[in-house]
Amino acid sequence: MKLDKITAIVRKEMMLNLRFKSTFFGRAFLDPLRFLLLFIIVYSSFFSIGTNSMAGVAAKKFLPFLIIGGIAHSLYIAGLGFDVKFKIEKYWETLPGILIAPVSPIILIIGTGIAELLREIPFLFIYIVVGYCLAPIKFFDIFFISMIFLLLYIGILGLGLIKGVFEISKEGLGLILDYVFAAIGLLSCFYYHISVLPTIIKPLVLINPIYHAVSLIRAIWMNEFSLPSALPYLISIILFAIIMPIIGCAVFKAILKKFSIQGY
């Protein structure tokens, strides 16, 4: 029966999204391109003058490097989208409907997560195909990479729920949280190599599981992967996918219980 609740949330989200189809598909396709194109222009302009490598990125591999970063970044944005959803529902005054219904936060995470993923998947698939054409890999590796992307997305959904509940209960913290999550995004090295960052910041990058997921996917795609050396990172990503939604649900319940909906 929990599946019914999940499909209900997915269906509702899709119905709301598909009300304005051009916005829906346009955003899903163009949003990842915004950053991707920007970095492609920067990197290609450097490599066009004959440089073989720049800031840890090889000229031959920079497009797959950026595409992987672009996909991870898209999932990061999609997973953190709870705040926008909750804010909209807050002003539509539909939020109490789901809060008083017998729906646990984990169902909310799964339902909303699937709905967002369904929106992103066609375009992410296109990016993977483009990446495959530029740097072919084994099909098993594509499956492995997809699994890591999925784990990464599940963990990010947990972070998103934390961001979202503050939008419900402590709206004033929204901007601060935007900056915090933008900083986590910067520390995830979606579009650049860790070597470009100042030494003082590197430890923060190394404790960020999102960075390890992105690095691991890049290593697999570029044939620089060996299981023994990657195992600790793989474990950290699995733990991130398990622990983050649990923390997200706990924070969601605690904050709502303490502060309820601010503004009603």
Partner: peptide
């Protein structure tokens, strides 16, 4: 507590499934 941007049926269906 209704979603204005979907139909009445979809609203009721959504809450029916949640419950």
């Amino acid at each position: 507590m209704l979603y204005n941007r979907v139909t009445g049926y979809e609203n009721l269906r959504y809450f029916a499934r949640l419950y």
